[in-house]
Simulated assay, not measured.
Amino acid sequence: MTPKTLSGHRHHIIIGLVVLMCFVALFFVYYKPAVSWLPCPRTELTPDTCKHVCLDVPKMEKAAQFENNCTLNYTMVQQQTADTQSPVLESAQNTKDTNTKVVLIWSWPFGHHFNLDSCGSELGITGCRLTDDRSQLDKAHGVMFHLRDIGGDLSYLLTLSRPPLQKWVWMNMESPANSPQLPGADHLFNLTSNYRRDSDIWVPYGRLIEASEEDKKTFQIPTKDKLVCWIVSNWNVNYKRVGYFNELSKYINVEGYGRHFDKYIDQDDYAKVMSSCKFYLSFENSIYKDYMTEKLFNALKYGTVPVVIGPPRVNYEEYIPGDSFIHIDDFGSPQELAEHLKLLDQNQEMYEQYFAWRKYFTVKESPFGLEHACRICEYLNKNHNFRVFTNINQWYWS
């Protein structure tokens, strides 16, 4: 091939390359590619790789626009990735598992923390996710508010925007005498969770359940070296229990423990002391229907006979056998009660009759806070109806 011919071929190649480059340039000017067309997969986007891909596009007006689009798409993908990595959001948005409910614990009751993953292991309640992350408020199916911890939050709560189907649950285990009212809280809550039987989500302080064969075989009345005991710290001369104790102690010796008696005991000593007493004064600080606290159920659990001040006997017998406790209302005076306790102390057979129930039942305590949150989940799974409490103060304090 002659030099002239070779030069002609080179000339044609150069012209072809120029035409090709012009075509490519025009292509990028007038064609706006989709993100999926470039090697910037949604599942692997990062700020650096996405920016790298965008900047490889020729520096033209459309390239600059594409870089902005790529950055915007990365931000959206990053947010979507964060959402899918959150188990709370995943459970709330999972349309396949309609039985999974998310309950937000607005504040830990009295600062008492519990395991958020223990509804199944502790109570056999499934389909439940608990969280204390307030940023998930708009994703929760239910929100649990502990009355005593709301305090100054009420005005703030009134400003919050709530999903239409979200349930706000008023939770409280104190008696009306020891609970603050919430002026302006009408229509704020949908449900209640309380020791009262007429609350929506009933959680008593304890309950008697069927005893296992092992419990029936192993229970024995603990050895006793004290007649009557009382552990008390909250001393108020206006309480009925204080006046009754002062009169009762004139006729029978009562071993006193707790802050009032300057005899502090820890949890281990608490169980030992209570089980070593023949009778324990399960005196409630206030008297209301269904208000039977750990003072009753701990006495039953640790093998002593509770002597109760609280609601009428008939109310107690809705929860525990009538021959498992002694009610002060059964006696005309503290002196008569003292004489009865002394009689039982001298008659072991009569005394043991108060433990006949242990052949069939055992005590199950309610995990404070945890059971309320888990029962809320359980309720929301089973009930999908409209519900609102129009006047919480009238219901609880009337």
Rank of each mutant, 00 (worst) to 15 (best):
Y379A: 04
N298H: 14
W37Y: 10
H340N: 13
Y291F: 11
V24L: 14
K216V: 15
K62F: 00
R42P: 04
E122W: 00
S366V: 01
R241N: 07
F261R: 04
P176G: 09
M274C: 04
L296A: 04
D225V: 05
F114H: 05
F145M: 03
S233E: 08
P3S: 13
S275G: 09
L341K: 03
T159L: 10
F389H: 07
N178M: 12
D56A: 14
S86F: 14
W108L: 05
L104I: 03
R358M: 10
K96Y: 12
D262T: 06
Q335G: 03
I328C: 02
S179K: 04
R358L: 08
I392Y: 03
M76C: 04
P3Q: 09
N68A: 14
H187R: 14
S286L: 09
R241V: 09
E339G: 01
N391G: 03
A177H: 03
E213T: 10
C128G: 06
L89T: 07
E90V: 10
D97T: 04
P47L: 15
S249K: 15
R207K: 15
K295E: 07
R134T: 11
V237Q: 13
C50N: 02
V307N: 03
S333R: 08
K32N: 11
R375H: 04
K226R: 15
S282P: 00
F279V: 02
L281V: 01
H372G: 02
C277K: 05
P87A: 12
I231P: 00
S282C: 10
V35F: 06
S135K: 12
Y251P: 00
D117N: 14
L182S: 01
T159E: 07
S7K: 08
C40N: 08
Q353M: 13
A177I: 01
M144Y: 04
C374P: 03
L130A: 05
R148N: 04
P109N: 08
D262Y: 03
Q136S: 10
K224V: 08
N315S: 12
W357H: 04
N73G: 02
M1E: 06
R196M: 12
Q166F: 12
F283G: 01
A211R: 05
E213V: 11
G258C: 11
E371M: 15
P109D: 08
Q181H: 02
S233N: 07
V88C: 13
P109Q: 09
T192G: 05
L137V: 02
F368C: 01
I265S: 02
S175Y: 00
L296F: 13
F189I: 04
S233M: 12
T100K: 14
